[in-house]
């Protein structure tokens, strides 16, 4: 493209396609304008197959991944229920409530929980415009009302918004007569009292257990 007479020369990076790619990458969380540019130029330099594989993986994930009809964890489109909800060995009388699927995966990787999950698909975050009607609460109430559940473990993050979400869930489930527990907080295994901060120590003292 030649410059217009008297006008500025075209920018050497001016390209609608590249700009579109940079804008798309820049919308990803934690990616700023510079990082988006860097990623875009990496994708343009790397082997074509690698870039196409990424694009295909994104398309396949968007087309084929659904939310489980029971717990809202991720599942393949051919399956109405996720692998955990389909597994007959899982204890259906205990539900662990998490904010998002990533938290569920972290708990699953720990390998110490044999019950089922419920993903809220977010947390109460008023400043981000997330209020209680946007959380996946109704289906949790329906699961508990089913009568099979004896305990709900609230595993939201130990932050202001996570704690407020846990309180909200507990208040909603309280009339249903199910046991509601919260993940313990305080000292980490292998840690040292000497280096624990006052919040950790306060939490640990508050959540102490009889031996």
């Amino acid at each position: 493209m030649s410059a217009l007479p008297g006008g500025p020369p075209p920018s050497p990076t001016a390209s609608g396609t590249v700009d579109r790619l940079v804008r798309a990458l820049g919308r990803l969380p934690g990616i700023g304008a510079k990082s988006a540019e860097r990623l875009a130029h990496h994708l343009l330099r790397c082997p074509v197959e690698e870039a196409i594989e990424l694009a295909e993986a994104v398309r396949a994930a968007r087309d084929q991944i659904r939310h489980c009809e029971v717990c809202a964890h991720l599942t393949e489109s051919g399956q109405a229920r996720c692998a955990i909800c389909r597994d007959p060995r899982r204890d259906r009388s205990v539900i662990c409530v998490v904010e998002q699927s990533r938290d569920l995966m972290a708990l699953e990787n720990a390998g110490s929980f044999g019950g089922t999950y419920h993903v809220l698909l977010g947390r109460l975050s008023p400043l981000q415009g997330v209020f209680e009607d946007q959380l996946n609460l109704k289906s949790l109430e329906e699961r508990v009302q089913g009568g099979e559940v004896r305990e709900v473990i609230l595993a939201t993050n130990p932050t202001l918004e996570g704690d407020a979400t846990a309180r909200l869930v507990a208040d909603r489930l309280a009339p249903l007569g199910v046991a509601i527990t919260r993940l313990a907080r305080g000292l980490a295994s292998g840690g040292s009292l000497e280096f624990a901060n006052k919040e950790m120590l306060a939490d640990a003292l508050q959540g102490r257990q009889r031996l």
């Binding site: 008023p126 400043l127 209680e132 202001l160 407020a164 309180r167 901060n197």
Partner: peptide, 25 residues
Amino acid sequence: AVLAERYEALTHDTAALYGGCYVAE
């Protein structure tokens, strides 16, 4: 950063949380 003050009421009461978020907003 060392925690100086945390407001427990905001975690127990949704209306208090909304009030606190309004202050921040």
